[in-house]
Each structure stands twice: as structure tokens, then as C-alpha cells.
Design a protein around this nucleic acid. Structure first.
Lengths: 148, 148
DNA sequence: CTACGTGCAAACAGTTTGCAGTGCG
DNA sequence: CGCACTGCAAACTGTTTGCACGTAG
């Protein structure tokens, strides 16, 4: 992973260490792109390679990495936070949440910039980031519904 | 409130009752538009007029009313759910979340329809609703920052 | 009289915190 | 040595559930 050096630099700036636990958390997220893992799921996956890691350590790693903007925390209103890499592209990466089967798909589209310009002009609100969730019925559920 | 009759009809369809507690929850939300109250805040406000109402009752009322699409549950990733009226306009009512002071402002803009058309054509995903949050720095924080 | 509704307390899930111990820098 | 870091368990917060009782239809 070429990105590790940049992670390392960000950690060093706050005199934080890249411990095996933290590195594993990062690797797990890297190995599961677009899966929006929860802390518990991450803990379970990390445990397979580091069996005695504590859940609190995972939480602390996730918090640290989120603060450093290495990860991004998102929530789908199911009561638990989920995490993914905070790649630059994520700022224009959105979610399609199926109301029937619950699957979360992603799409990238930059459509919001003109809106953000307008908001700044009209309201003086400087948009730094955005989060767009579209709720609806996905293709496969749609097909099943038509058959049923 | 002219809307109460429609609430009543929706409740009757499921043979649910419009109890004083439920009506109060509705009135509190009506009296605090755009404030995104949490269950606890609603409970506190309701208690002022109905001192022995239980928190669980508020939760149950909120769940019921959300299921009936009378209310809408939203979350700003602060660990608790928030509620507002599910007016039709809400479907194109979005949030500006200030990263510095935490204030949540609203704006209405319909800008997403063309995007939704495109998503349906490309991905077969039929969008029913959307939720857009813009994170940034609000006007007053922006001014303070420039001064400071 | 039955099904819905309630208050209370206990249970629950996700997350955070306190603490004693470990080990890098 | 000192401070970051850890695992563990206990604490905390928001929410849900079980239960006994009440009350509307």
C-alpha cells in the first residue's frame, strides 16, 4: 500500500505511532472497499489476524484515524457508525440505499458544486464536504416487485 | 391544526388511537419547526404539560408516527436520532451542518431531480427520497474566523 | 371484554472511559 | 525514564422490551 507512508506522516505529526493494531485496522478497511464496515465488523475481521485485540482499541484507532482524516465515519441510521477510507474521491461519492433489501450501493457524480456555489453566495455558508443519500428501490428489487 | 384530521385518519387505518400523549408529541414538533429535536428533548418538552409521561412512551409514539410517515427521523451522526414533521416539502429540504458551531440550518432547493432521472436510467435505481447534508462553516463562524 | 396504550424498570446495543500494565523512543 | 498505547472491564448513552395495570371501543 503506497498510502501507508502518508498515514505514517500524519500520525507522526501528532507523535502518534503506527502500531500493528492500527495498521491492521487500516488494512482491513483497504481490503473491503465500499463495504461500510461497522466498528464491530472491523473488530471481528481484525481479530482473525490479531486474536487478542480489544474492541476499545479498535474504537480508539477508528477515532484517531477519523480525526486525522484518514478514515471517514458515516451512518445509515441503523444505530451504528460505519467507516470507510477517506479517499479524495469520496467527497463526491454518494450512496443509494434500497428501502426494500437495505443494500447500499455507491455512485460518483459531481453535480453539487454549482449548488454549493449558490449556497455560498446566498447564505454565506462555505461548504467543505457533502453527504448525499438517495433512498429508493434498487434494480433487482424493482424486477422482483414487477414479477410478484 | 388542520393536519390533525389527517393524522387521525392514518392512525385509524391501523386501529391506533390518538392519545393525549401522542397528540402532545405531535404538537411539540409542530411548535418547534426546524429544530430537529431528539427523543430526550421531546420528552422534556412534553413533560412540561404532561408531567408523568414516560420516556418509553415518547419513543413508542415517535416510532409509530414515523412508521405512519407523519414524522421523519434524521440523524446528524451525533449518536441520537432527531425528528421533524414529514411535510411534503421536506423531500427537498436539506441541511447545512456547521462543522465549527454545530448549528444546523436548512435550505430548500430542488436540484436533484435531474440527477435522479439519470440514476434511474443508468442504474435502474428508482429514487423515492433523498437526504442531502452539506458540512461546512456557517456565515457567523466564518466572520469570527476572519476576525480572529 | 379485548386489544391497544401506558409508566416503570430492566435489558440491550453501541460507544467511551478508567486503570494497571507494556514497551517504544 | 516518560509517554503513547493496549486489553479488560466497568460505565455511560440512546433505545427497546417485558410486564402489570389501565382504559377506550
Amino acid at each position: 500500500m503506497q498510502k501507508l507512508s502518508s498515514v505514517f506522516r500524519k500520525l507522526e505529526e501528532g507523535s502518534k505511532r503506527l502500531t500493528p493494531q492500527r495498521e491492521l485496522v487500516i488494512r482491513i478497511l483497504a481490503d473491503h472497499p465500499g463495504e461500510h464496515l461497522s466498528a464491530e465488523e472491523i473488530h471481528r475481521l481484525v481479530k482473525r489476524e490479531f486474536s487478542n485485540i480489544g474492541l476499545a482499541t479498535v474504537y480508539r484507532a477508528l477515532e484517531l484515524l477519523t480525526d486525522l482524516n484518514i478514515l471517514q465515519r458515516i451512518s445509515f441510521n441503523d444505530g451504528k457508525a460505519r467507516y470507510e477510507f477517506n479517499q479524495e474521491e469520496l467527497h463526491r461519492h454518494h450512496h443509494l440505499v434500497c428501502l426494500r433489501c437495505g443494500k447500499v450501493a455507491e455512485f460518483n457524480e459531481d453535480l453539487l458544486e454549482s449548488l454549493e456555489d449558490r449556497i455560498y453566495k446566498r447564505r454565506g455558508f462555505k461548504v467543505m464536504d457533502h453527504e448525499l443519500k438517495l433512498f429508493g428501490i434498487c434494480q433487482s428489487c424493482n424486477k422482483n416487485a414487477r414479477r410478484g
